[in-house]
Amino acid sequence: MSPEFSDKVKKQVQDILAHYPEKKAALLPVLHVAQQEFGFIGEDTERMVAALLDIKPVQVREVVTFYTMYNRKPVGKYHIQVCSNLSCSLLGGAGLLDFLLKKLNIGLGETTKDKKFTISTVECLGACEQAPCMMVNFDYYGDLDEEKIDKILDNLK
């Protein structure tokens, strides 16, 4: 079945379209909305978005695969992205990533069996003063250590 936006989201998309003189310019924001709605950007969603913006599905695929934030496969309820760039690495980011993977018993890029967590690495999040840091969905967590990570995960229901 091909995906469809809810009426509320359709309204949201209309608002976005109004920001630009060309429909196509709304591609990135509309893909964000679509990802929020469906959790990931599948082929069907690509096609739907293409139709919505009067562009070709191949143009949507080009964009979806260029930007790292679009998930092409479903991710867990909480997508944990650990910064692997310099400041975070200097302060032990790599060790914390290992800790997280071990704690959730999954490999990098994998999702826990209960579909709750996915872990991946990410390039600099722009929060270097809080290194080491990570992002859970859109929330930033900084000055991390193992104890803090334990607490954060406990609070993610």
């Binding site: 082929e43 070709k56 599905p57 191949v58 143009q59 695929r61 080009e62 695969t65």
Partner: peptide, 21 residues
């Protein structure tokens, strides 16, 4: 006809078609 596109980026960038296109 827009059959071809560049997918992925950096060294992984590749020219490709869609699965059904």
């Amino acid at each position: 006809t827009h059959e071809l596109g560049v997918f992925e980026r950096g060294v992984h960038a590749e020219i490709s078609i869609l699965e059904d296109g």
